[in-house]
Design a protein around this nucleic acid. Structure first.
Lengths: 156, 156
DNA sequence: TTGGTTGCAAATATTTTGCAACCGG
DNA sequence: CCGGTTGCAAAATATTTGCAACCAA
C-alpha cells in the first residue's frame, strides 16, 4: 500500500468515488466493510472511536468485527483519508511545566518538542467559543517529522 | 482530596516545598514515593510515560511499583501539578474532515467540538521551528468544561 | 494511633496479530 | 483464480482496582 505523501492534500471528507480511486491507486481492495466504515466515519458529526463505529455498523452489517474496524481505520489513516484526533494513543505522557507552551510531535518516533509561541498566546479566540462552555487552557500542536527521522527516511 | 480549581494558577514546575504545601492543603500524605515521582517528572526534559518513569525510579527506589506511579500521576494531575500531554488516552478517536479546524475538548465528558479559527491559521510559526524538522500540520486545542457539564456541576 | 497509601496480583480495557476461510478485481 | 482481506480467537499492551500490610502525620 502506498502512503499519502503528506496530510496536506485532502480537504473535506472524500466522496465514495474518490475513495474508490484512492483504493485503486494504492492497490488495495474496496471491500463492503471498508465502504461501510468509510461512510460511517465521513458522515459522523462527532469523532467516533473504533468501538462506537462498531456499535453503529453492526446494525447495517451484523457480521462485521471490531478488529476489521481497527485495521481499516489504520489503513485509512495511512492513506490520508482520516486523521486521529490525538496521536499519542499508546501511552499517556506527562508534563510538569505548567507554563504556556506548545508541542511539536513527530509522527514517526512520537518525540515531543516544546516551544514558545507568543503570537499564538495573544491571538484572540473566536467569539462563538463562549457558547461551548468554559475554556481554561489553549495550546497549539504541530505534527511533522523530526530531524532525526528525516535523516532515517533518506537512508531507507 | 481537593481538586485544583482550574489549571490556570501554576506556572513553572512546583518546588518540593510547594509540593509539601499543596499536599497538606489537599489533605494527602507526602510519601517518599510521591516525592520521588515528583522529582523525576519535574526534572525530566522529555515528557515521560508512567512506564518510563518506572524504569528511571527503580534505580533510586527499587521497591516502587508501576501502579503507584499510575495512581500518583493521576493524583498530581487532579492537584494541578502536572498535565497529561494528550487527554484522550482511553480510546483513539477519528476525524474524516481533513480541512483545517480546531478542537475544544471537555475534560469532564471528553466531548470534542470542532471550530474554525482563521486568526490562528494565519499566525506565523516562530522561526526556530524549522530546526525541529518538517511541519505538515498545525492545530489548536482548547481544554475546558462544556455547557452540559457545567450544568451538571451546578447540580452536584 | 489511624486513615490514607503502597505493593502485589488480578481484573479491565484497548489494540494488535496469527491463521484459515473467503471474496473482490 | 489469487492475493489481499475478513472474522475469530488469542495475544499484547496499557491502565485500574481489591485488599492486606504498612507508615506519615
Amino acid at each position: 500500500m502506498k502512503r499519502a505523501p503528506t496530510q496536506k492534500g485532502r480537504k473535506k471528507p472524500a466522496s465514495v468515488d474518490e475513495l474508490r480511486d484512492i483504493c485503486r491507486q494504492a492497490g488495495i481492495k474496496l471491500t463492503p466493510q471498508r465502504l461501510e466504515i468509510f461512510k460511517a466515519i465521513s458522515s459522523a458529526q462527532d469523532h467516533p472511536s473504533a468501538e462506537i463505529l462498531y456499535e453503529r455498523l453492526k446494525k447495517r452489517m451484523p457480521t462485521i468485527s471490531l478488529d476489521t474496524i481497527y485495521r481499516t481505520l489504520n489503513t485509512f489513516e495511512k492513506l490520508g483519508l482520516i486523521k486521529r484526533v490525538q496521536l499519542l494513543n499508546d501511552q499517556a505522557r506527562f508534563d510538569a511545566d505548567m507554563e504556556s507552551h506548545h508541542h511539536f510531535i513527530c509522527t514517526r518516533c512520537k518525540k515531543i518538542i516544546d516551544f514558545k509561541w507568543p503570537d499564538f498566546d495573544s491571538t484572540k479566540l473566536p467569539e462563538n467559543i463562549k457558547a461551548f462552555g468554559k475554556v481554561y487552557g489553549q495550546q497549539a500542536e504541530l505534527r511533522g517529522i523530526c530531524r532525526q527521522c528525516l535523516k532515517k527516511e533518506e537512508s531507507e
